[in-house]
Structures are given as structure tokens and as C-alpha cells.
Design a protein around this nucleic acid. Structure first.
Lengths: 225, 225
DNA sequence: ACCTGAACACCGTTCAAGT
DNA sequence: ACCTGAACACCGTTCAAGT
């Protein structure tokens, strides 16, 4: 009767890399990249900042692990029997949506030589480029182009999300941007002004996919497929 | 004789936004993004940190202004009489080299709605896409694809530069990466392993241009040109 | 109008001390 | 082996006080 604690009270699970990464993701999603501090993380895990360093080497590793965890979840498990073109679209859209849901991913690039969290994306794109029938010598270029485009869009969306006032939705943001563009110097920004109107009824996902299709078209035009 | 200071001693020029931005660029180039602090900047300008805030609203604006200053310099002044394809290559390569010389640019995305430092790149790409004969309705997509690709590569190069030990040159970096890739799990990273060898004799600029050509090929294939 | 520099409210990271 | 939390060496930014 005395040897057992009276109220079991669900003792806190011990700290683990996994729990730390999950907590970091939760903070990043709610408070953004600037909200993730070791103090905030420690508080959420009901411990001190120092404890985290036993499981994780520092903030860079933490951000990398969080990115890898989220990206892994959207990677396809089996190869669906669709065309490579469709598979690339699905894959790219998965990454796009992941960055949309977790904008902080967009700023994360590989830092460790070789093995970045985004290497999984590279791998899966590569398989589809192979399936397209691109010659071996051109596969790297083709995959790189797709990957850089996807991460380029992601980086931009992340930047947009960061400066978003929470009270400003996407439509309002586009509308503001369109107004700014229409007001630019007619000499210096002649082209930009001509496309300002388009901006207002823009769908980000549609536009993103148009770019993917463009690159896939370039791949098949140049390398066959 | 007494009204004039005896040693003219080249009195420090007064602080100005321009001088501050130049000093910031110099620090960014030598010490990297983490080296740019208001204290370091103040010391270089022989003043206190607070003085800088009279001319610049904060660190974000400072980074934006520095990016804009560097990007402006590589923008073409007149329209050379080449093909649009060549003009796009030249333009893209200019941005690529600028990011290579100033890696901190690679992480800078537009944050102010509408007018980012990279809008000049967008504008000049747009003019060439017009010259390619792309229909108006497709111009935005075409320019976006090029821009996102260019900034995607830039972001990656910036990340690589950041984690570079200064003693590790590009060849060594590629070689290390190739070794890591060749050692990956054969199931999980089947494709990546097959292109690991290519990595060793990679030229970044050539590879970058191959991607540009791919997208331009896609643009002309889909939208004519 | 512009500059100074101390002060404020934070950071990431370390480390002696605990269990 | 793992956790605690005070302490260190920084940050960006503000602001009373000077010229």
C-alpha cells in the first residue's frame, strides 16, 4: 500500500529525441520559426533547456530532424500504377502542401553534406524520371531542375507566410501585391505591370503545377520520354 | 589660424543609409550572415548601434537593402541584340554568380508584399519571355518557373556555403557527398546511388544552365516561341 | 536633426551539481 | 545515464541624454 504511489498520475514519459522533435514541430506550427526557442521547448516538455541537449546536438539538428519527420510523412509508400508525369505531380504537390501546412520547412535546405532532409524528395523524383525514359546521363539534370523548382516555390511561400499578418488572408495579400505592382515605375517595371492584373485571381496550387508541367515538358522535349 | 582645425584629418563622412548598406555588404561577405550584427556594424562605422536605427528600421530592412544593392548591379543595362534564349541564360547566370559571390543573398526572399529585392530579376525575365513570343496568358507561369528555379538553386548554394568548412573546397565537398550517397541504403535510395558517381565531376554553372535550358525548352514546347 | 551608449529583454549553449 | 537550472556570452532594439 505504501510501496505504490497512491495516485498513479501518469508519470511523464522520459525525454526522447522523438518526443523533442514532435514538440518542436508543434511549436513551429503554432508560433513559427522565431517561436522555437530552447526555453519554450523546455517548458512544453516540463524540463530545463539543458536536458534537450542530451538528446539533440543543437538547434540546427533539431530543425533538420523536424523537417525530415514532416517530409517523410508525405512521401509515397508504394508506387501507384499511374504515369510518371502524374506521379511527379502528386509527389510535388505533396511537398507543396507540406510546406503550406508547415511553412518553416521552406527555409530548411540540406546542410549536412550529402544527406539532407530533402534527399527523400530527390530520390522519389529520380525514380519517376527514370520511368520517363530519360537517358542516364541526363537524369541528374532533370531531377535537379524539378527539385530546385519545388524548393524555390517552397522558400518563397515560407517567406510570404512569415511576413503575413495573421489577419491578412491570401486573397487580400494578392490584391495588395497586385496594387503595388500596378503602381510601379512604368519604365523600370514595364513587364511586371502588365501581369499585375493576373495576380488577383491566382491559385497557388494551380500555378505551382503549371511550373511542374513546364519542366516535365522540357524534360520530355529534350530527353525524350 | 585658430578657427580652422590644424590637421584636417579627413573627418568621417556622416552616416547615411548608403554607407550603412555598403558596410553591411562588406561584413556579410567576409563574416557571413551570422557575422552581421548591429554591434559589428556600429564598430565598423565608428558609432553606436543606436545610430544605425536612425537610417534603417531594423535588420530585415538592412538585409533587404543589401540584397537589392547587389542584385541591381548584375541586372543588364541595355537590351543586347541576342536571342531571348541567350539573354535568359546571361541573366540567370548573372544572378547565379552574384549568389556565388555573396551567398547570403540566397536566403533572402521578398518579404514586403509586392516589392521584393528580386522583383528586378522577375521584370527582366519577363521581358525576355515576352520576346520569346509566349502568349500573354502564359507569361506569368513561364517567368515564375524560371524565377523559382533560379532562387531554388541560390538557396541551395547558400545553404551549402554556410555549412562549408572554409578548409573544404568544392571538389572535396562533392567528393564527400558522392561517397555518402554511394553508401546509402540500397532499398531506400536506389536512384540516388546510381547518380552518386556523376557528382564527382560536376560543374555547378554548367548544371545550373542545363536546368535553365530545360525550362526554356518547356516554355517553347508548350507555349511556342 | 542626428548621434551616443547604457539598458532591456531576450537568445543558444554550457556545465557543475544533482538523481 | 539522464536531468536540472543557473550562468555565460551573446543578440536586436529602445531610449534618455547629448550635440
Amino acid at each position: 500500500m505504501a510501496t505504490r504511489a497512491r495516485r498513479p498520475e501518469r508519470r511523464e514519459e522520459p525525454l526522447s529525441r522523438e518526443r523533442i522533435v514532435e514538440a518542436a514541430i508543434a511549436i513551429l506550427d503554432t508560433a513559427g520559426e522565431s517561436g522555437l526557442t530552447f526555453r519554450a521547448l523546455a517548458e512544453r516538455l516540463a524540463t530545463g533547456p539543458g536536458a534537450i541537449y542530451w538528446h539533440v546536438s543543437g538547434k540546427d539538428e533539431l530543425l533538420g530532424a523536424a523537417t525530415e519527420a514532416v517530409v517523410s510523412r508525405v512521401m509515397p509508400v508504394g508506387t501507384a500504377d499511374t504515369t510518371p508525369q502524374d506521379a511527379i505531380r502528386t509527389l510535388a504537390l505533396g511537398v507543396f502542401d507540406a510546406i503550406d501546412a508547415h511553412p518553416w520547412i521552406g527555409t530548411q535546405r540540406g546542410r549536412t553534406p550529402g544527406h539532407s532532409p530533402m534527399l527523400r524528395v530527390f530520390e522519389h523524383l529520380g525514380r519517376q524520371v527514370q520511368a520517363l525514359g530519360v537517358p542516364h546521363a541526363d537524369q541528374f539534370s532533370a531531377v535537379s531542375a524539378l527539385q530546385h523548382y519545388i524548393l524555390g516555390v517552397g522558400g518563397q511561400n515560407a517567406a510570404n507566410a512569415r511576413e503575413h499578418r495573421p489577419d491578412m488572408d491570401r486573397t487580400e495579400f494578392l490584391s495588395t501585391t497586385a496594387a503595388v505592382w500596378a503602381d510601379l515605375d512604368p519604365e523600370e517595371y514595364a513587364f511586371t505591370r502588365t501581369v499585375a492584373a493576373e495576380l488577383r485571381d491566382h491559385d497557388d496550387r494551380t500555378e505551382f503545377l503549371a511550373g511542374i508541367d513546364l519542366i516535365v515538358a522540357g524534360i520530355t522535349a529534350r530527353f525524350g520520354g
